[in-house]
């Protein structure tokens, strides 16, 4: 794989991360990160939708009339989201129940429109696919980190399994109820951005 393609695929994991560098898709990062499982499912769903909508728009890019291109993008994204929702409802009903509202919100996830406008309209299908996968994974990575801290500190569990031993609770340890609330997701994202910027000095604004 050429260095450019590697950059397309792996760049969004760190230097071009959609959540902590481009600050896209923040609302869903707050909504589904109280536990790891919905965060993972949301990440996978967004990855699938962004990759395939990128490919479809990239294939159509030379035919799309520029005056209705946003509408075309929205129709493609909405159709894919509905298909993902239908499949989840048929094969992962519990997850569907947890995510029900947020699946619909994928349509308005800024990462999708951002990648379609910025990348897929100007690049070939394979590059666009890699870009979609990369951005989806970058988004998933942040969601998983946030959900890890929120579930561990808020519920004392990971993926629903209790991690913090009972002896801690007996000794007076308490789950932090604030971690379950959406504001803490924002604060955790802020901390991740802080750590990330202090490692990557070139990202710091002067």
């Amino acid at each position: 794989m050429s260095p450019e393609r590697k950059d397309i695929l792996f760049g969004p994991l760190s230097k071009n991360n959609p959540v902590i560098v481009l600050v896209l898709g923040i609302c869903s990062a707050l909504a589904v990160t109280a536990q790891l499982k919905p965060a993972l499912v949301m990440g996978v769903s967004v990855t699938v939708v962004v990759a395939f909508s990128n490919v479809i728009i990239s294939l159509l890019r030379n035919t799309i009339p520029s005056r209705i291109r946003i509408i075309v993008q929205l129709v493609v994204v909405a159709a894919l989201v509905i298909i993902v929702e239908q499949i989840l409802k048929a094969y992962a009903y519990e997850v569907w129940g947890q995510l029900s509202v947020y699946i619909g919100l994928i349509i308005t996830n800024c990462i999708l429109m951002g990648r379609l406008e910025a990348f897929a309209l100007g690049n070939g299908p394979f590059d666009s696919f890699l870009d979609g996968i990369g951005n989806g994974l970058g988004y998933t990575a942040i969601l998983v980190i946030v959900a890890f801290f929120r579930e561990l500190l808020g519920s004392g569990a990971l993926l629903g399994f209790h991690i913090i031993p009972q002896s801690f609770y007996d000794a007076g340890y308490m789950n932090n109820g604030l971690m379950i609330m959406p504001p803490m997701a924002l604060i955790v994202v802020g901390c991740i951005i802080w750590v990330h910027r202090s490692i990557n000095k070139d990202l710091q604004e002067k």
Binding site: T63, P65, R67, V75, V76, A79, I83, Q86, A90, Y93
Partner: peptide
């Protein structure tokens, strides 16, 4: 533009109808 929009909508509608039809039984069971 007009033809493009119409064709796109028809294709998308057909695809969604097909997905819905083929998964309906499983969803009802759930």
């Amino acid at each position: 533009t007009f033809i493009y929009a119409s064709v796109m909508v028809i294709i998308v509608a057909a695809a969604l109808a097909f997905v819905n039809g083929s998964l309906k039984d499983k969803q009802k069971k759930n």
